[in-house]
Design a protein around this nucleic acid. Sequence first.
RNA 1: GGAGAGGUGGCGGAGUGGUCAAUCGCAACGGUUUCGAAAACCGUGACUCUUUCGGGUCCCGUGGGUUCGAAUCCCACCCUCUCCGCCA
Length: 427
Amino acid sequence: MLSIQYIRENKAEIIAACKQKNLDPKVVAEVLSVNTLRKQLQNETDTLRQQSNMIAEAIKQAVGSGQKPTTKQTEAGKKIKDQLKELEPKLKEAEASFAEKMLEIPNVPAADVPVGADESGNKVVKTIGKPKQFAFTPKPHHELMEQADMLDTRRAVRIGGFRSYFLKNDGVLLEQTLLQYALRKLENLGFTLLSAPVLVNEETMWGTGYLPWGQEDHYLTQDKQFLAGTSEVALTAFHTGELLREKDLPIKMAGISPCFRREVGAHGKDTQGIIRVHQFNKVEQVVYTVADENKTREWHEQMTHLSEELLADLELPYQVLLMCTGDMGAGQRKKYDIETWFPAQKKYRETHSASYFNDFQARRLDIKYQASDGTKKFVYTLNNTMAASPRLLAAIVENYQQKDGSIVIPKVLQAMMGKKLITPVAQ
RNA sequence: GGAGAGGUGGCGGAGUGGUCAAUCGCAACGGUUUCGAAAACCGUGACUCUUUCGGGUCCCGUGGGUUCGAAUCCCACCCUCUCCGCCA
């Protein structure tokens, strides 16, 4: 959410932002016109309420000096009450409509975000590590994992439908090790560890900006709770409605949770393997900073760098992409995706995503802090993937495969995993 | 699921129809003072009208209702806590 003052003063910029993000810009005009109506109705009701209060005050004075209210007074009061009964529902409606429209206004992309309609407009910022040259044709991760008895999709699909999977044996252990490694890394950097709720209410989904834009990407329960697609939702909302102190900032949180995605727009994509699934596990970083875009941009770089460091630890080749306007979320100012090399596909595939929002989410969630100058400001929020499995797990498996189908455990995970090699199992 | 208690400003905690935006305590921040600090004193929400000075409305979980007038009375809902039941 942006402030109405900002929207009023920067109408053209926001209309441009809508277009750049492939959203309908008509909400901008709508929010401004309903705001005018709202103010007008408020002025009218305020005037009536003032009159009503004056009558009540006069009666109070009379009663205080032992007199009784006159019929004239009570009649006048009643008349105003009738008028208010007509006017107030209109004001309520205008206010509700205003609040609703405000939640449909997207954030403006940062100045250095490339304008583009879709993923073709994304820019590769850097490419790190060289894809390993295999002396044989590398197999896709799912084949390797099945051979090593780490994965069963055939039975899973019978149980949970398309895109379901069982991790098995070393698959389970390697996933746990990877997530644990990511958590430890963040813990060592002073992040607060949180095992986050996945079942969240509608307000929280609105607050983080997943509504109205991402409605169809989420599962909704019969109790009107959503299954969150990421622990970003719960972590970003952690201090909802609170007034923090500047000295509390930055607040650094590391969440771990299952994540649920409907993948409705992805029919026919990634039908092989476990790159695109409805349920996965993820370690996520969420940070609140002071209300200073330079500070938040520093954190954006730093958080992205933490993910890069994890990939470097795992010795996986990757590239960092600066996402263009058409490929970023409505609430985001700027987003980097990290894509990790998948040798069997001969492609870099998205494994991480780092975004910053300024106060877009904090306004919706009402998360403020008292700044050192005494004023109250909204915090600036950011989030980033630290490790998402099974996607990153699949990357490890593909990159670490050997000719005989065995999989070397990345060095940094060996001690925690308790082994150095996963070998195929005779079928 | 059953029974009970409760939701008041950053926190604690008064307040049972008009003198309540709300006593009091603590904290944070700003101001005055100071070489600086402490102490002391003053101030601190949202919206809105106004060039300024200043004015108005709203804000006691949420939404309705009663009343000239509601934090206070009535109704519904939400949430929290305690006990019981069920249960990973």
